[in-house]
Amino acid sequence: MEEILAGLAHALRLIFSGDPALYEIIWLTLQVTGVALGLAILLGVPCGAALGLYRVRTRGLITVLLYTGMGLPPVVVGLFVYLILSRSGPLGTLSWLFTPYAMIVAQVIIAFPLTAGLTMTAVQGVDPALRLQARALGATGAQEVWTILTEARIGVVAAIVAAFGGIISEVGAVMLVGGNIEGKTRVLTTAIVLNTRTGDFDLAIALGLILLAIAFIINGGMLFLQRNALE
C-alpha cells in the first residue's frame, strides 16, 4: 500500500516536474502506438470489410488465421519481426532493428488481426438488406462499403479500441525489437519493465499510472465517438 501511494505521489511529481526524458518517453509511446494503430486501421478495416461483405472462397481459413492471430503472444510476433529485420535476416538492409520502425512493424502485426477480424464480425452483423437498399439508392461499390461500415461503426470503433489496448500495453515485442534504448526506443511499457527490474517500484508505478491515464483519455474519446454514433 505504501509503495502504491508513493508511486502515486511520484507520478504526480513527475508529470508536473516537466522532466524532458519523461515527455520524450510519452511522446514516443504516442507516436509508435499512433502510427501502428493508424496503419492497422488503414489495412485492417478495409480487409475486414471486404471479408465480411464479399464472397471470399477462403474466408473460413482466413477467419481462423485472424482469430489465431488475435491470440498470438506478442513476443512471438516480436521474435518473428526481430529475425526478419536483423542484419542477417531478409530485410536486414533496412536497418530498422532497434528503431521505432521495428516497433511499429511489430505492433501493426499484433493489431491487424484485431482490426480486421473484429471489423469483419461487425460488418457481418449489419442487415444485408441495408446493402441492397444502399445500392438501390444509387451507391457505387465503394459507397456501399462505406455505408455498411458506418452502420457497423460501433463494432468498428470497438475493433479499434481493442487494437489500441492491445498495442499500447504491449511490452514483450517492443522490448525485443526496439531494445529499450534510452531516448530512441524507450516507451512507457519498456521503461516500466526496466524500473521494475532495478527495483525502482515507485517510478514503475508512476509510469504505469501515466500509461493508465493515457489509455483512459484515449478510450474515453473513442467511447464519446461511439456514443455519438449510437444516436
Partner: peptide, 22 residues
C-alpha cells in the same frame, strides 16, 4: 422495400442519403 430499412442517424440524414451519394 417491404421493410423501411432505415440507416442509423436522423430522419434528415436518411432522406439526404441518396443526395449525398450523388
Amino acid at each position: 422495400f417491404q421493410r423501411p430499412l432505415l440507416l442509423r442517424g436522423s430522419v434528415a440524414d436518411n432522406i439526404a442519403f441518396g443526395l449525398r451519394l450523388r
